[in-house]
Simulated scan of single mutants.
Amino acid sequence: MVFDSLKNRAGGHDELSPMQIAHHTLFTSKEKIALLHQLKSNVVGANSEGADLGFDPSEIDEAIAEVRRETQDGVGTQTVFRGDA
């Protein structure tokens, strides 16, 4: 039996992009902001050590701004479970 997981739904073993996190229906706005801030902290730390995690901090800032815009418009304050939509 194959178990469905967030990792598989997000495209397999590839990482989620900041904008994919911003638009993901399984996370609330608070969770998205927390994840994006954590990601930004990791990216900034990695960049200062000369490593590249594949995201620019400005991409993460854009995703955070997108979540905030959607929250102001009343979108993304609740998660959507399969069958709810």
Score class of each variant (00 low, 15 high):
67 V>S: 03
25 T>D: 14
47 N>E: 13
43 V>L: 05
79 T>V: 15
63 A>V: 03
20 Q>Y: 07
35 L>H: 01
18 P>Y: 05
11 G>A: 06
80 V>D: 03
50 G>E: 07
37 H>F: 10
16 L>R: 08
53 L>G: 05
9 R>V: 09
6 L>M: 07
69 R>T: 08
77 T>D: 14
72 Q>D: 14
65 A>G: 05
10 A>S: 12
12 G>F: 09
28 T>S: 15
58 S>K: 15
63 A>F: 04
79 T>E: 02
54 G>E: 05
12 G>A: 09
61 D>I: 04
43 V>S: 06
15 E>F: 05
83 G>A: 03
75 V>W: 06
3 F>P: 04
22 A>C: 05
36 L>A: 03
75 V>C: 02
55 F>S: 09
67 V>K: 04
25 T>M: 12
30 K>T: 10
26 L>A: 11
63 A>T: 02
16 L>K: 13
42 N>Y: 11
73 D>W: 00
45 G>W: 02
68 R>F: 03
82 R>L: 13
81 F>Q: 11
82 R>W: 07
57 P>D: 07
72 Q>S: 10
80 V>T: 14
47 N>Y: 05
80 V>M: 13
29 S>Q: 11
32 K>A: 08
49 E>H: 00
23 H>K: 15
74 G>C: 07
17 S>L: 12
54 G>N: 00
74 G>T: 06
46 A>C: 10
6 L>I: 09
14 D>V: 11
1 M>P: 10
10 A>M: 08
68 R>V: 12
13 H>T: 15
29 S>T: 15
7 K>R: 13
66 E>W: 07
13 H>I: 08
60 I>T: 04
38 Q>N: 11
12 G>N: 08
14 D>K: 15
64 I>Q: 01
72 Q>Y: 01
58 S>E: 13
4 D>R: 14
81 F>A: 06
39 L>N: 05
76 G>L: 10
39 L>R: 12
84 D>M: 14
33 I>S: 01
28 T>G: 14
76 G>T: 02
61 D>V: 00
43 V>G: 09
35 L>W: 06
40 K>I: 01
60 I>V: 07
48 S>E: 13
24 H>V: 07
36 L>C: 09
72 Q>V: 11
8 N>P: 01
24 H>I: 07
26 L>F: 02
45 G>A: 10
16 L>D: 00
7 K>E: 14
15 E>L: 12
80 V>G: 00
81 F>H: 10
72 Q>H: 05
71 T>M: 08
33 I>G: 02
39 L>V: 04
8 N>Q: 14
58 S>C: 06
36 L>V: 06
8 N>E: 14
55 F>P: 07
67 V>T: 05
13 H>Y: 08
52 D>A: 04
40 K>M: 13
54 G>A: 06
36 L>D: 04
27 F>S: 04
2 V>E: 03
11 G>R: 01
5 S>I: 00
80 V>F: 14
54 G>Y: 07
20 Q>D: 09
48 S>C: 06
9 R>Q: 12
65 A>R: 08
3 F>Q: 12
29 S>N: 15
27 F>P: 02
72 Q>T: 15
49 E>I: 02
18 P>M: 00
44 V>H: 09
43 V>C: 11
30 K>G: 12
27 F>G: 05
9 R>Y: 02
34 A>S: 14
47 N>S: 13
39 L>W: 02
60 I>Q: 00
19 M>E: 12
22 A>W: 04
50 G>P: 03
43 V>Y: 00
83 G>D: 11
33 I>K: 08
77 T>W: 04
72 Q>P: 01
46 A>N: 08
